[in-house]
């Protein structure tokens, strides 16, 4: 057996890269787990819980857009679908919350599967427009079927008999489980295939990658994760409104992924916390938070395409060299 040539041994494989990112994300989650020891304020715990909601959404969207190159503009919609699934089941069929959440994952995953199949051939602006229309149609349906959803007033949803701290760790547990799941997926050959599809679909097919399967799988998984986040959030907030599916929500998710670094495991998760917590904090000092974040999205996309994760990586490299 020949030994691998030495210079090539220095190359970082995708799997290694993913592992580094996974470790960084775990460290970040460990810090999040420690925060309640110092912060007892229920308001700030609530802010962090919502951050985790967005972290799940940003992570799920990143799997689809950052790794697979399918630029969907409907992540918030799948959260809305998940939230309404459990909300409606609870309201009309007395389905208990936990079962409702499971149903939400299944339903949003199925809708994601169908949409993913339908848009298989669409790329770039065409895909963005189709998913945007899907998002708007779903929102219109939610806000106009007033007999069933109570429209923009929103649907009251049962809470869980747990306190805020328990909610905090529930969200964190779900986030960490999803993180591990994504890690296992991306570290396997699936990680290679998804990124290959993102870079060049035809070349991926030539290499024997089952593009239809993997693209649909990414769509389904991403939708199911968003649906899970939405359903959890519904029971946390005890209210579901069509606002969950607003394009502006998708804008926020997209901002987090772009600022954190698309196509990296840790970036979008960490950025979800930074963006959301900072925005709550900035709200107190003038309320320019959304202006700042929108500007950051444009600046990052224009000048730092690898996001905060890329900047951090470059900083570490420079520090090691010095």
């Amino acid at each position: 057996m020949t030994q691998p040539a030495t210079p090539a041994a220095g190359a970082q494989l995708t799997t290694t890269k993913t592992t580094v990112e996974f470790r960084a994300a775990l460290v970040a989650m460990a810090i999040v787990a420690l925060i309640p020891l110092g912060v007892g304020n229920p308001y700030w715990l609530g802010v962090l819980i919502v951050s985790m909601y967005f972290a799940i959404l940003a992570g799920g969207w990143n799997l689809l857009a950052g790794y697979t190159g399918q630029f969907s503009l409907a992540p918030a919609t799948f959260a809305m679908i998940g939230a309404y699934t459990t909300g409606l089941l609870g309201t009309y069929y007395n389905v208990p919350p936990l079962l409702g959440i499971v149903a939400a994952v299944v339903v949003s995953g199925l809708v994601g599967l169908l949409l993913g199949r339908a848009v298989l051939r669409l790329v770039g602006p065409y895909l963005a427009l189709t998913t945007l229309s899907f998002a708007e149609i779903m929102r219109l349906v939610a806000s106009n079927t007033i007999d069933i959803t109570r429209g923009d007033l929103g649907l009251g949803v049962a809470g869980l008999p747990i306190g805020r701290l328990a909610w905090y760790y529930l969200f964190l547990a779900v986030l960490v489980v999803l993180l591990i799941l994504f890690y296992l997926l991306l570290r396997s050959k699936a990680g290679l295939f998804l990124q290959a599809i993102r870079d060049d679909e035809v070349a991926a097919r030539r290499a024997g990658v089952d593009v239809v399967f993997w693209k649909t799988a990414a769509f389904t998984l991403s939708a199911a994760a968003s649906g899970l986040a939405g359903a959890l959030y519904a029971h946390f907030a005890e209210l579901v409104t069509p606002e969950l599916g607003l394009i502006a929500q998708t804008g926020l998710i997209l901002s987090m992924a772009v600022i954190g670094g698309m196509g990296t495991l840790a970036g979008p998760l960490v950025a979800a916390f930074l963006v959301y917590v900072l925005s709550e904090w900035l709200r107190d000092v003038g309320g320019y938070q959304l202006v700042v974040f929108a500007a950051l999205v444009v600046i990052f996309a224009r000048f730092f395409r690898e996001g905060l994760w890329g900047l951090a990586k470059a900083a570490v490299r420079r520090w090691r060299q010095a």
């Binding site: 857009a65 630029f71 770039g124 602006p125 997209l254 772009v258 959304l290 202006v291 929108a294 999205v297």
Partner: peptide, 23 residues
């Protein structure tokens, strides 16, 4: 990257202008 760049940048610009005017 151009497709995703175009979506991100124009989407970001849209959010920026809306919120700027809002403030």
């Amino acid at each position: 990257m151009r497709d995703e760049y175009a979506v991100i940048v124009t989407f970001g610009l849209s959010l920026f202008l809306i919120n700027l005017v809002d403030k």
